[in-house]
Amino acid sequence: MSNDPMIHFDRVTKRYPGGFEALTEVSFKLGRGEMAFLTGHSGAGKSTLLKLIMLMERPNKGQIFVGGQNLDRFSRRQIPYFRRHVGVVFQNHQLLFDRTVFDNVALPLEIAGVAPREIGRRVRAALDKVGLLKKEKVFPITLSGGEQQRVGIARAVVNKPPVLLADEPTGNLDPELSEEIMKLFQQFNQVGVTVLIASHDLALISHMRHRVIRLDHGQLQIG
């Protein structure tokens, strides 16, 4: 069981309506507890690959397994329950600006039906991990870019997903902040979370010493 990969792409092809082929026959495995970077030029298919794992898109050919489960088998109604096991961090962090940091981070727990008294404890634990415990009552608009991204990360990990995905999480940040954010991902990886980060920041990736999955025009580059 533990030899099962956490994420397994088996000859996956994704073609968008209109004929653009974002991914062609992509196959790879990412082990449980592994951390990897997904790189490539813009338009290489990084976002599409992440969207396929999130079930935001469906492949045209091939199969995807996450945690040993074939994603084909998830009906539309089951997708939300699947998504609760996958944390996602976005480049534009997708925070809701009409509610506090606490409420933003609490959202996945409320959705999952966690008891209200339990929510406070877990939200503070997540905010503590990203170093924003003191900012729980403020609104995201008053935070810096790096802080906003850390709120996004807290929200992605608050319900302890076994898989954490990130789409250009450092895209808008300066190198110093970027490294801080990457270290945060590393910390989650160290406690057993499988992490896959799409990024084109090659300088940063090269000194992180993790596996690199490289896409070029929708095809996997070996090496």
């Binding site: 109604r77 699947f82 998504r83 609760r84 997708q94 809701l96 009409d98 959202l107 959705i111 929200r155």
Partner: peptide
């Protein structure tokens, strides 16, 4: 925007 985020973090349609 809110609807999108809620759906992304696993909100069901009834929710």
């Amino acid at each position: 925007d809110e609807i999108l985020v809620v759906k992304l973090v696993g909100g069901t349609d009834p929710y």
